[in-house]
Structures are given as structure tokens and as C-alpha cells.
Design a protein around this nucleic acid. Structure first.
Lengths: 212, 212
DNA sequence: AGACTGAGAGTACAGACGTTCACTGAATCG
DNA sequence: CGATTCAGTGAACGTCTGTACTCTCAGTCT
């Protein structure tokens, strides 16, 4: 069974997984310049250091690879929701915290957030579809999170959906701005603006019921 | 000078302009499937019905063509602001009106709004840059519009920018949703949601000063 | 130890790509 | 009317694309 492996050498499955990861990472990297639709199988193969045909041992097509990247990227996005909901749900400090959490995750998984923003509107059809579906799920997830916050129990579910949609939209927009930010000082500006934006939205939402 | 032209025939400049338009329209149409980066010069030429090399008589590259499309598209976007600001600036009916105006313009210039949404994040570098710059200008334009509304005179200019940015972001998101909407009944839903969203944001903004 | 499996190599092909160049012929100009 | 201009033609180029095949040979299983 397990032949003792030399320290530098890897088992067959490990080697395969290693190449697979390299392909995924390379494709993610190359797509950052424009979109996954502009990435060719041969480009990826060359960058990874394998022959073009070897690509097929791992993925049936660039599009299939893209669907995998969608899953990975949304793990990163959901992690934001998870970390936001971790601390006590006091609304005051939740705002500042949320923006920081988002910024940290964007910093750590820059490529994933960029991928979502791009491929949502300009990816291969199947990938675009997958991203949109995932975003809808995230919107729902956020809606149930909000519903758990004291003071929002009586909200209409439609209003809840509108609010969570608005928050996800501006969350993606903020992530996009953070990715684009060249210098660290800009990052601080964007975070401040995002905080103000989020406060405005929540002030609106809290005064919402009285509107009718 | 002007030789009498047969009814069906056109002058030389008219012919050239006609081809030029066909190229622009075709490129806009083809890019709708993914992004302008995935559109080739030869594809466009074939669709228009000219030989590939004739393309160069009109544009130096697909990228240059794209910059032209950016200008055209933002004429369509600015038209929304113009039509929104036309009626009296009473805040109540401004909300309902704005969403309708946006929906009408998106319906009429579907391709332009889609182009902006896509190429902003996934176009050729120069095109992306141009779109972003134009969006920033539109944000500023909207900010000065808002500043003219009674009751917002005392706002900090930073807050004004944050609000207008938020509004443009959700405006683009709404346009995107409207374009994607397959059936007309969905359009009504999206418009309702956009109205609620806009109201929420404005309720927030109006109660903003008291926050400090 | 011998058989088997499968990731990757290598070769090959047909088609699409951007770009070059010399050309044609109808509209325009003097 | 003769000279000029220029949008569109057509052939040719070198490069890149996805995909089909056969082959190799190290890691694995029995």
C-alpha cells in the first residue's frame, strides 16, 4: 500500500491535486486582467508548465474550471457573513465591524472577490448563471441574519429582501472599490465611505416601519 | 458638387457613416453575450458584411471602437439624469418618477446600459478605465442635483458624495436587473423593489443630519 | 514481481486570429 | 472630362486556438 515516500516526492493523488490547484490559481490570476472568457486553455497550460492536452485530465473545459472557481469564491464571500454574525448582534458596533471584516476578507481573498464581480456580468454563460444563483442565496442568507436582529421582527419579508439586496449590492461594490484601490490610504477612504453608506442605509431601514 | 443622387444611392460620406454605424451596432450586439474582450475584429466584419481589413478604415482596433461605444452609452445614461431632473423637484413624486424614467430609458437603450455594466469590470483596460471615469462624472453630476433639492443645503459634501455613489450603484444594479428580466411581469417586480430601495435610502438620508 | 493505471508528453491538424500589402472602381473634385 | 481620393477587396503571413490521437513511465495494486 503506502510505500514510504521520499520527503520531496509526493503520492500520485497529491501530485494530481497539486497540478489541479495550480490550474485553478493560474486561471484565476489570468482572468483578473479582463474576464475568464478571454482566458485560453493553452495560456493556462503554458503558465502552469504542462502541455495543453494535459489540461483535460483535470477539467473538461475552461467553463467547467470556472464553475469550480465560483464555488471557491463563494466560500470566501460566505466567510464574510459568518464573521460578521459572530460578535454580539448589537447594531451600533456591528456597522464598523462589518466594514472591517469585509475589508480583511477582501484583502485575504482579493482574487475571489474580483472574480465574483467580473464573472457575474461578463463570464462564460454558465459561470455567469452560477454566480448569480449564488448571490441570490447569499442575499437570502443575509435576510435571515437581519431578521434575527432585535427590532426587525415585525418587518415584511419583501422589505427584508429589498434591504438585504441593497446591502449585498453595495457590499460587492465596496469590495470592488477595495480591490481597485492602489494605495493603502485610499483603502481607509473607501472604508469610511462604506461605513457612512451602511449607516445611511440602516438609518433608513430603522425608520422604515413608520413610513407605511 | 452635389451630383443628383438616385433615391436608393447615397453619397460617399453617407455610405461610410452607414458602415461605421453598422460596425458599432454589431460590436455592441456581439459584446452582449460576454464582453467586448471576447469580440474579434473578424467576427464584426463578417457580421457587418465587409472584409476584415475594411474594418481599419473606421477604427484602429476593437479597443478604439469600444471607447466610442463608451461615449454613446453614457449619452444614454446621462439622459436618465436629465429626464429625472426635468419635473419639479418635489421629493415625494420624484422617487416613483425616477424609477419609471430609468426603466423607460433602459428599455429604449438596453444595449447601452448592459455595455456599461459589463465593460466597467470586464472590458479592455482602456475601455474599463473610460467607463469608470464617466461613472465618476455621473456621480458628481447627481451630487450637484441632489444639493439643489430643498432640505439638503446644509449637507457635508462628503455625505453628498456617499449618497450619490450609493444611488448610482443601485441605479446600475437596477438597470442590470431590468435587462436580465425575461418576462414583463418581472419588470414590474424589479421596479417595485427599486422604488422601495430608493425610498429606504432617502429616508436614511433625510434622517441623516440628526445622527451626527 | 508483475500487471495496471493514469498524469503528462509529443505530434498533428484545421480553423480563427490580427495585420500587411497591392488592388479596384465608383464617387468626388478641379 | 480627366485626375484624385478612398471605402472596400482579396491574397498572404505568422501566430494562437481547441482538440484528436498515440506514447511513456512512475506510482499503485494484487
Amino acid at each position: 500500500m503506502a510505500t514510504a515516500l521520499g520527503e520531496g516526492s509526493l503520492s500520485r493523488v497529491e501530485r494530481k491535486e497539486r497540478t489541479r490547484r495550480a490550474i485553478l490559481d493560474t486561471a484565476l490570476d489570468l482572468s483578473a486582467d479582463t474576464s475568464l472568457v478571454a482566458v485560453s486553455l493553452r495560456q493556462v497550460a503554458k503558465e502552469v508548465g504542462i502541455v495543453p492536452t494535459a489540461f483535460y485530465r483535470h477539467f473538461a473545459s475552461i467553463e467547467a474550471l470556472g464553475l469550480e472557481l465560483v464555488d471557491e469564491s463563494f466560500v470566501s464571500l460566505r466567510a464574510v457573513l459568518r464573521d460578521v454574525r459572530r460578535p454580539d448582534p448589537s447594531l451600533k458596533q456591528l456597522i464598523d465591524g462589518s466594514v472591517d471584516v469585509l475589508a480583511e476578507h477582501v484583502e485575504a481573498r482579493r482574487a475571489h472577490f474580483g472574480f465574483i464581480a467580473r464573472e457575474r456580468v461578463a463570464g462564460p454563460p454558465a459561470v455567469r448563471e452560477a454566480v448569480r444563483h449564488q448571490i441570490e442565496l447569499v442575499e437570502r442568507e443575509l435576510a435571515t441574519d437581519i431578521a434575527r436582529i432585535p427590532g426587525t421582527e415585525a418587518w415584511a419579508s419583501d422589505d427584508l429582501r429589498v434591504l438585504s439586496r441593497l446591502m449585498v449590492t453595495s457590499m460587492v461594490a465596496t469590495a470592488e472599490a477595495l480591490i481597485l484601490a492602489a494605495r493603502p490610504e485610499m483603502t481607509q477612504d473607501i472604508k469610511d465611505q462604506a461605513r457612512t453608506q451602511l449607516r445611511m442605509v440602516l438609518v433608513g431601514a430603522l425608520n422604515w416601519k413608520s413610513q407605511g
